[in-house]
């Protein structure tokens, strides 16, 4: 069905080329219209931000379109504060992929 935005990490992005996903990350660096981020599985991804993107926190969740294995076109950002357990996030990402009947 429509309106599905699977939670992914960098390793799983290749399976979602062109699709809209959710990526929970730690922001490493903001430079102009892009953000360099660390994904829950420790990978690095470049996120192309929308013009007035309000990326204020250390940890954020992006909804965006996967352009290739290391880049995402941002649609929406949600600020998550300064304390998110990325290891736990990764566990949940993998758990959701292991049980597609209720998550996908």
């Amino acid at each position: 069905m429509e309106h599905r935005t699977p939670r992914v990490n960098s390793a799983r992005m290749t399976s979602y080329l062109g699709q809209t996903v959710r990526l929970t990350v730690k922001v490493i660096k903001l430079q102009g219209s892009t953000a360099l981020v660390e994904t829950s599985d420790g990978g690095q991804v470049e996120v192309k931000l929308v013009p007035d993107a309000n990326v204020t926190d250390t940890y954020v969740e992006f909804i965006g379109q996967v352009t290739d294995a290391q880049s995402l076109n941002m649609l929406i950002v949600t600020n998550l504060g300064s304390d998110v357990d990325l290891k736990l996030v990764d566990g949940v990402v993998e758990m959701m992929h292991a049980h597609p009947t209720i998550f996908m």
Partner: peptide, 8 residues
């Protein structure tokens, strides 16, 4: 309108 990533 609620969206949890699995649907709306």
């Amino acid at each position: 309108v609620l969206d949890d990533g699995t649907g709306r």
